[in-house]
């Protein structure tokens, strides 16, 4: 289930990029919180009974029209650091994200980015700048 997702009028992301994620998150057994202070659809899981969200995050955004990108990452622990720790990137060019890729990515997120759960389709480098 997804909580907190909203868009700014005039800044709606392409349905091609976002809709498969929204559906997958709403249908998932996990409970996901969107961080609306960050660009794109940026979310983390909150485990049952926990007050806080997990450190692992996924950011879905559209660097170019028709290009969907999802980055698995952790934020810095330090309040004064802007560092982000990326774990890989899922790319969908001029097509919706594959539901099985999204499912693998969510399983990876919920497993704390454990290397054994790393999706095979995850890229290790990307030619785009990731917005904050």
């Amino acid at each position: 289930m997804l909580e907190g997702w909203r868009t700014t009028p005039g800044d709606e992301p392409s349905p091609l990029v976002m809709e498969p994620w929204i559906h997958a998150l709403n249908d998932s057994e996990g409970y996901f919180i969107v961080d609306t202070s960050k660009a794109g659809l940026d979310f983390a899981e909150r485990k049952p009974g926990s007050e806080t969200v997990e450190r692992c995050r996924i950011k879905v955004f559209e660097p170019d029209p028709g290009v969907g990108l999802a980055m698995a990452y952790k934020d810095s622990r330090l309040t004064h650091s802007l560092d982000r720790f990326a774990y890989g990137f899922l790319v969908a060019r001029r097509r919706p994200f594959d539901p099985s890729d999204i499912s693998s990515m969510l399983a990876y997120l919920r497993a704390g980015f454990h290397p054994e759960r790393r999706p095979e389709s995850l890229k290790r480098a990307l030619p785009y700048t990731v917005p904050r």
């Binding site: 802007l82 560092d83 990326a86 290790r124 480098a125 030619p127």
Partner: peptide
């Protein structure tokens, strides 16, 4: 090494993940 398929990066390193990120 990060751009090869499959990637050939050194396993302790994270340099490739920084491209465009930091």
């Amino acid at each position: 090494y990060w751009y090869k398929e499959p990637a050939k990066n050194c396993k302790f390193c994270t340099t490739g993940f920084n491209v465009g990120v930091n």
